[in-house]
Write a protein that binds this DNA or RNA. Sequence first.
RNA 1: GCCCCCAUCGUCUAGCGGCCUAGGACACCACCCUCUCAAGGUGGCGGCACGGGUUCGAAUCCCGUUGGGGGUGCCA
Length: 469
Amino acid sequence: MVDVPRLRFAPSPTGYLHVGSARAVLFNWLVARRTGGEMLLRIEDTDAERNRPELTDNILETMEWLGLGWDGEPVHQSRRLDLYRDAAEKLLAAGRAYWCDCTAEQVQARAKERGGPPGYDGFCRERGLERGPNTALRFRTPDEGTTSFDDIVRGHVAFENAVLEDFVLLRSSGMPTFLLPNVVDDADMGITHVVRGEEHVNGTPKYLLLSEALGLGYRPVFAHLPVLVNAQRKKLSKRRDSVSVADFRAEGYLPEAMVNYLALLGWGPPDGVEIRPLSEIVELFRLEDVNSSPAFFDVKKLQAFNAEYIRALDADTFVERARPHFTHGDATTEVLRPMAELVRDRVRLLSEVEPMVAFLRDDEVQVDDDSWQKGVVKLGDRGVAMLEAAHRRLGSCEWDRDAIEAALREAAVEAGFVNPEGHAQMSKAQSPVRVATTGRSVGPPLFESLVVLGRERTLDRLEKARERL
RNA sequence: GCCCCCAUCGUCUAGCGGCCUAGGACACCACCCUCUCAAGGUGGCGGCACGGGUUCGAAUCCCGUUGGGGGUGCCA
């Protein structure tokens, strides 16, 4: 039988999918795709206290949005509890586990008393306790020897068994904790490559010891990915940092930009070409090339990628993809369509699209104070003259892009915006007209904007601005 | 405290003993283009943490120091 690589992503439904997990999904997915293997999905919901079942949907939906699907049906640990209990019984029967009734307080108190390292001290190892209402089952770690493994990204990693404390297998509630189901399922699901975050490195010897004690004869290949950190170089945390992939989606990031960017955290293509389709990344990606040092999640660079991906969209696709971000669906779509390319080349996020064309949609224009001061008031008499000249000339010209440009250039000359060569100085002259009609000092090209705005509203807004001065 | 890991421009990375006067990308700065803003073009700023080895030769290998991170839960 040929060994088909089999990977897995194993989230616990205690939070939304964040960028760190998304990167883990991606790398697992890439390996599966590249090697012709599969990536399975396992929901690690053994913590009844913290589980939020509805979050599973968010995680799955977000993975689909990213375009990183999984193979087969998701496995839920909460539906396989018998498997873990059987495994626990086996360990107990083999003398590799024992019952313990110590409370967390007692464990801490003893650690403090002896002045040694924190953690469980093996107090109940020889007490011969029976299962009771307040007993947890602990794994008895070896006192001697070392446990080591070869990590694809980190090389050889070794631990003295003596530093491994006797960890909990079954809570007093009877529910298993992380490690036991993790090992049992990986073996049961035939996982060949365990690709996960660096935070799991220290748990790996326990994982291996468990596998051995269970007589599973199971030993996957490990690859521990570097953590993603914030600007303070701390591991990204859901509490401190805004890292929910669903939030990025809501802000108007494209999944292809997100995935492309994520691939570059801890890995780089050999030819240095950073922006490229996922299909190419699949071809190039190798776990052996993954870094082992922490990577900063740089939103600025993500935005740059996003802008580039947006610019690569054709006009219709751009409108369709921006549409879900509109608060006034059809109305915004209508005014955006004729301006699509011009707007598309100016936004970094899809959420920026609607504000950029709102002046075309709404009856009244909201004039930004700062823009008003800098773009109109500051120009003094010439600003007034420009508004008046523009109003007059736009009142009688044809209504197309070139005619509007010609009219405004003439208005500029009339209002005194002339350069040494005697030509209209449009960079300055356009500003009062722009602010009066669009409400802002920056935005899509003015002439095209006015075409869509229409003569009536344009003249009306120029007049209102004039009156306001 | 103990255990494990990490260390190339501000950031993400290329580099796997000579091709390195260290390449690219993002960010930043300047100029060009230009109806604003973008985009684009050109140029610039900027890095092998430090100290020892090994070697004819080290960003690349080894050791130490320093700095950073992760873990140390009846969370995952």
